[in-house]
Simulated scan of single mutants.
Amino acid sequence: MSRRLNDKTIAVLATTGFEQVELTEPVDALRNEGATVHIVSPEEGQIKAWDQDQWGKHIKVDVAVSDANADDYHALLIPGGVMNPDFLRQNDDAVSFVRDFFEQHKPVASICHGPWMLVEADVVRGRKLTSYPSIKTDLKNAGANWVDEEVVVDEGLVTSRNPGDLKAFIAKTIEEFGEGKHEGQTASESGGRSASPGSI
């Protein structure tokens, strides 16, 4: 079987309150394609999932977001859950980490409430994307072209609405992560900075 992500190292940005299946299913799929996946978080040790209407499993944290560098990764995944991005967007290191992927033209995938982090990082202006409907207005106010579709791909940015979209979301995430950098994947409509020297 072809493993399309054998040479890729992927960051997954999450904290306690992430929606369980929106992390576990994409991570399993990425690893099955050969990717090395690191869970990056402001918390140390473990983070706890939210599983529909109750607390779920614990996930081991690999890298503290304060120590994480986008230069070391090929792509970024941001799962949803209401609490997860709400906590993350209050963390300056997490917000900067997200923005750096756009400035380096690297693919980013985010589902459900995850795109809240894209608003905080100020990277959605002029971009086509989707999300959980309750944050539609926030995305529009930040300049995004919001659409109601199961998966939206815009120059390396992959977004979906909810766990029901995971099959399509995962397929497009693997495809975009495999393709690598996209020049249209930038931190603003006018374009972001070039990648740092020596970054992957």
Rank of each mutant, 00 (worst) to 15 (best):
Glu176Trp: 10
Trp50Glu: 05
Pro42Val: 01
Pro163Asp: 10
Glu155Ser: 12
Lys181Ile: 08
Val119Tyr: 11
Gly184Thr: 02
Gly156Leu: 09
His182Gln: 07
Lys8Asn: 03
Val119Ser: 12
Val123Met: 04
Leu76His: 08
Arg31Phe: 06
Gly80Glu: 07
Phe102Lys: 01
Lys48His: 14
Arg161Leu: 07
Lys140Ala: 14
Glu43Pro: 13
Pro79Ile: 02
Ala64Gln: 15
Leu76Trp: 06
Gly156Cys: 09
Asp165Arg: 03
Asn6Pro: 08
Asp154Ala: 04
Gly56Arg: 01
Leu129Gln: 10
Gly180Val: 01
Val124His: 09
Ala121Ser: 12
Asn162Lys: 14
Glu25Ile: 05
Lys8Trp: 05
Asn32Thr: 08
Ile78Lys: 04
Ser131Ile: 02
Ile78Gly: 03
Lys8Glu: 02
Glu22Trp: 11
Pro42Asp: 07
Thr186Val: 13
Gly178Met: 05
Arg89Val: 00
Glu149Asn: 07
Gly184Trp: 05
Phe169Ala: 00
Ala68Gln: 04
Thr36Val: 12
Val27Ser: 01
Gly178Ser: 10
Lys128Met: 06
Val21Met: 14
Asn69Ser: 10
Asn6Lys: 15
Gln104Ala: 13
Leu23Thr: 02
Gly180Pro: 07
Ala142Gln: 02
Asn69Gln: 08
Asp138Val: 01
His58Thr: 10
Lys128Tyr: 08
Asp93Phe: 13
Pro133Cys: 03
Val124Asn: 08
Glu176Gly: 04
Val95Gly: 09
Ser96Pro: 01
Gln104His: 13
Arg89Ser: 01
Gly191Ser: 09
Glu150Asp: 13
Asp7Thr: 10
Glu103Gly: 09
Leu139Met: 00
Gly81Ser: 06
Val82Trp: 15
Met117Ile: 04
Leu23Lys: 03
Ile111Thr: 01
Leu118Arg: 06
Val27Cys: 03
Glu150Ser: 14
Gln52Ile: 13
Gly143Gln: 05
Asn145Leu: 11
Lys172Ser: 11
Ala187Lys: 08
Lys136His: 14
Ala109Thr: 01
Ile135Val: 15
Leu88Pro: 08
